[in-house]
Amino acid sequence: MVLPVQRSGMVVSSGWVAVGAGVGFALTIGSTTAAVPAVYPAAVLVAAAFAVGPSVTLGGAAGVIIHDLFRGAVGLWTAELAVWMLAYAGLVAWLDPDRTPGAPTWAARTALLACLVAGAYATATAAWLTAVLGGEPFYTGGVDFLPGLLVVVVGALLGGRLRESVPPLFAEERSHTPRVAADSAAPRPRRFDRRRGAALLGLGVVGVLWLVGAIGLDAFAHDLGKFGSENELRNYAGNLFGTGTLVAALGVSVLVGVYHYGDLVVRLSPLLVGCVVLSLRWFVSTRRLPDWGAVASDRRPTDD
């Protein structure tokens, strides 16, 4: 199965933005009426980006903001949701470097991986933003978006199938660029590029480590915050680990370190992750990795 990822991200389609804004507004009203968490309609709009491009998600974020304005209740929840949607769709568009209209699409597993990678980074970014702005801790914000991640994955798969089934429905999005070809309505599947897949996998590992690690660290630091002072924590740790051993000293040091600096590390985590990603990119660019099975002259081999 071929699951197309955004293929004409160079052009913002005003029509799809308008459609996204309307649908986003309507879905948010529906979710508030039915008391369904707003992350679900947001995830539907993100999943739509896989079928028709990120313009619809851009409009969807605008729809959410307009809805909250309409309610007279714009808050951190508005920013959190809009940032998650935009970061998700933007990352998906960024991860697919080939924007030419007739370009072959990614294979399903690569697209699925891209979906998860973008989801991890978008979720961590939104949770971090909410924590920094003082809405709620990182771990609660991050956990809130995980069901949305699942909806996006399922929706992206369904969107891919829909795009395969009725390609003329999505022809308009591609036609905004001048190089429209008649056969562009039937995207060619792109064979799994191991080199690009490995880079994507590395990026995904860093993103998942960021999300899961920051959630765990933040929750742990939050719980340790119940201790009124460092002495209380040291007494507790002394009872827990004992005294006079290396394990005890190490355990107490870790607990005291998390107690004092856990929250700070979570807040600075984007810088750390940025450094790791840039280092990874530098490492990959300076060291030529073996290209297993790929055609040397074509970095985007197809099944044709």
């Binding site: 029509g15 308008a18 605008a62 309610r71 007279g72 714009v74």
Partner: peptide, 27 residues
């Protein structure tokens, strides 16, 4: 006739301001 991006963003912004004013007013 297709609206330009500037027109579209203007319309979205106008709708947002009007809706916000209505929401805050009634709330």
């Amino acid at each position: 006739p297709e609206p330009t991006r500037r027109q579209l963003l203007g319309a979205l912004g106008g709708a947002a301001v009007a809706a916000g004013a209505y929401g805050y007013g009634t709330g």
